[in-house]
């Protein structure tokens, strides 16, 4: 069974592209055949986050406009079996593609892939409408901030209005030490407000900056707490029952490690 999953948020900069790269890679590590689709036409970034920017020949718009076959535009990630990227066009604009064309494109890939993971651009305009057009399921990415949660709420409303009812929530960049002090909204607060199913909580983690700089997904780095969280999300998408990580303990573990290496006090 094949599934089209769109990652969306409304607000920019909450970690859609990072989440797409990591969840997609993690799904391929589970033995699934996965294609990552960058729907952010004009502002492509999934290629650099994945470290595949030097291998682009054709892009999504070339496929839609029939300048090449789909197979020619797909970039095979040599590091992970079964992982492919369909890059966005960089020199075109959002209206280069219509929702109907995107829907057709997603449908055409269903035979070849278990998961088609679409990275949606920020905003609620044409790019958003394109990205969600072929989606069976949506993952809304937010951070525990007022602006991001407000935009997530609006996005959930728009997804429902577009008949996408299978909606899940990822809360990204949680800082457990601040939550404990009451200075940041807790996961329960965000879930209560948005009232959708929570599929993952990702801690704020420096390893994301480091792995993104190198162009390698954090899920392949064993020591990364965020990578672990993304791996768990992939397993939940795959239907496994994975308990939520105890983020407090990861904090404590970090403190312990710091103490061992003499960084504390």
């Amino acid at each position: 069974m094949s599934e089209v999953i769109v990652l969306t948020s409304g607000k920019g900069g909450v970690g859609k592209t990072t989440s797409t790269a990591n969840i997609g890679t993690a799904l391929s590590m589970l033995g699934k055949k996965v294609v990552l689709v960058d729907a952010d036409i004009g502002l492509r970034n999934l290629d650099v986050v994945m470290g595949l920017e030097n291998r682009i020949v054709y892009d999504l718009v070339d496929v839609v406009e029939a300048r090449c076959r789909l197979k020619q535009a797909l970039i095979k990630d040599k590091r992970y079996e079964g992982l492919y990227l369909l890059p966005a066009a960089q020199t075109r604009e959002k209206d280069a593609v219509t929702p109907q064309q995107m829907k057709k494109l997603c449908e055409s890939m269903k035979g070849d892939f278990d998961y088609i993971v679409v990275d949606c651009p920020a905003g609620i305009e044409q790019g958003f409408k394109n990205a969600i057009a072929g989606a069976d399921k949506a993952i809304v990415v937010t951070t525990p901030e007022v602006s991001a949660v407000r935009d997530a709420d609006r996005i959930i409303g728009l997804l429902l209005a577009n008949q996408i009812k299978d909606i899940h929530l990822v809360i990204n960049r949680v800082r457990m030490n601040m939550v404990k002090k009451g200075d940041m909204m807790a996961m329960d607060d965000v879930v209560e407000i948005l009232a959708i199913n929570l599929i993952g909580v990702v801690p704020d983690d420096e390893s994301i900056v480091i792995t993104t700089n190198k162009g390698e997904p954090a899920v392949s780095v064993n020591s990364s707490a965020a990578g672990k969280a993304f791996n768990n999300i992939a397993r939940r998408i795959d239907g496994q029952d994975v308990p939520f990580m105890d983020l407090e303990n990861t904090d404590k573990l970090m403190d312990k490690l710091k103490k061992i290496f003499g960084f504390a006090q």
Binding site: V146, R150, G157, V179, D183, M184, M185, A186, D189, I193
Partner: peptide, 19 residues
Amino acid sequence: APAGTIAKDRLKLVLVHDR
């Protein structure tokens, strides 16, 4: 009132109008 609680309360109010 901790900042997290203030955030939640403000959000709830804003969302009532948004929704």
